[in-house]
């Protein structure tokens, strides 16, 4: 495994996480969370955890983003923090 690639992915993951909790628009937050999950899924594939990465790709980046957007559709999109 290439540690530089690993490290860059981890840094982007942390940036995505911080962005997901600090952005004011909840829909963006949901999408950033999906991106975060997907990057983690890449990271895990790179570490050899293919099954976990597959699950995370279907669940974290797929189904739970769908749940999230479904919920935001019914509630408000803006937030104060």
């Amino acid at each position: 495994m290439i540690w530089q690639l690993d490290f860059i992915l981890l840094v982007i993951v942390v940036i995505c996480a911080i962005a997901a909790i600090s952005v004011k628009d909840l829909l963006s937050s949901a999408i950033l969370l999906g991106a975060y999950s997907f990057l983690l899924c890449l990271l895990w594939t790179e570490m050899g955890a293919v099954d976990v990465a597959f699950t995370e790709a279907t669940v974290g980046a797929g189904i739970s983003t769908a749940f999230f957007i479904g919920a935001i559709y019914h509630t408000s999109r803006r937030t104060k923090d």
């Binding site: 279907t58 669940v59 769908a66």
Partner: peptide, 17 residues
Amino acid sequence: SPGGGFQGGCILAASFI
């Protein structure tokens, strides 16, 4: 190969979604 009941079930659910 990677996969199994959980992942496959999620993909089937995704088709309905």
